[in-house]
């Protein structure tokens, strides 16, 4: 399985994980461990930047994960840039999962503001991983301003509905020169495998693991699904067909 490169880092695991919604810090730690994830996102709103003993942060620092702070809660580019700069200082990482969702219900990303913030943050030296709608044009524009990846949603965040946007994701993957990470809506290992088979470079999973009655087992299931999907992609899937192949060639009369 090929390693994944994003900016200055190389990842063996193509499963990225989140830290929200777990029933305890210990369970989060165990699930992340089972997922073998190497990049973990956490909301700035949840962690206490002043205290290293924070219930989420302490486990992440102990296990030496690559931290991916996210800006969940900001509603425009200006707020995002402000939060990003303070996070960079406090957490000593220039990696940022850019989330700008002015709508607090479906948490759908604002493409216009995301593009504006990405442009500014890239100029300020950030490695930006923006959460976006599965919008192929927006993804190309983000690439043009120097984003390190794009993270289109499979379906609304937390919905567990899988790849409702698969047609657009297919176009995004086809057109992209940078890693494409499917970020939201992945509710089952089969969804993750599907994304990987399509050629997504990684997936980010949170709710489906955290809310499962058995987060550790579910994390393991996602790990295996992501690996299976990726290996299948690299091995190249056989084409699907709706008709049986006839055994007698149609063009034998030409020889």
């Amino acid at each position: 399985m090929q390693a994944l490169e994003i900016a200055d880092k190389t990842f063996t695991s193509r499963l990225f994980t989140g830290t929200g919604k777990f029933s305890s810090g210990e369970l989060m730690r165990d699930a992340l461990l089972a997922s073998e994830s190497e990049l973990v996102t956490m909301a700035l709103r949840r962690v206490d930047l002043k205290e290293q003993n924070d219930n989420i942060l302490k486990y992440l620092l102990e296990a030496n994960y690559n931290l991916l702070p996210n800006t969940s809660g900001v509603r425009n580019a200006k707020e995002a840039v402000f939060a990003a700069e303070l996070a960079r200082e406090a957490l000593e990482t220039n990696w940022l999962k850019l989330e700008i969702h002015p709508d607090p219900r479906y948490l759908l990303p604002d493409g216009e503001e995301t593009l504006k913030a990405t442009d500014e943050l890239v100029k300020k030296g950030f490695v930006v991983l923006p959460y976006v709608q599965a919008d192929p044009v927006l993804c190309k524009k983000l690439e043009d301003v120097g984003t390190s990846t794009v993270m289109p949603l499979g379906s609304p965040i937390g919905s567990n509905k899988g790849l409702d946007t698969r047609d657009m994701i297919r176009i995004i993957i086809e057109q992209s020169n940078i890693p494409v990470i499917i970020d939201a809506g992945i509710g089952a290992p089969s969804h993750a495998a599907e994304a990987m088979e399509m050629g997504a470079d990684a997936v980010l999973v949170n709710t489906a693991i955290a809310v499962s009655p058995n987060p550790v087992e579910m994390a393991m299931a996602f790990k295996l699904a992501v690996q299976a999907g990726r290996i299948a992609f690299e091995a190249k899937l056989a084409d699907k067909t709706n008709t049986a192949n006839t055994s007698s060639p149609l063009t034998s009369f030409l020889s």
Binding site: R45, T71, A83
Partner: peptide
């Protein structure tokens, strides 16, 4: 809350997001 299998969340906002 913990005995119910839930996590007590003390912090879910930060002035840096305001």
């Amino acid at each position: 809350i913990r005995n119910n299998g839930y996590e007590a969340v003390w912090k879910d906002w930060d002035f840096i997001l305001q």
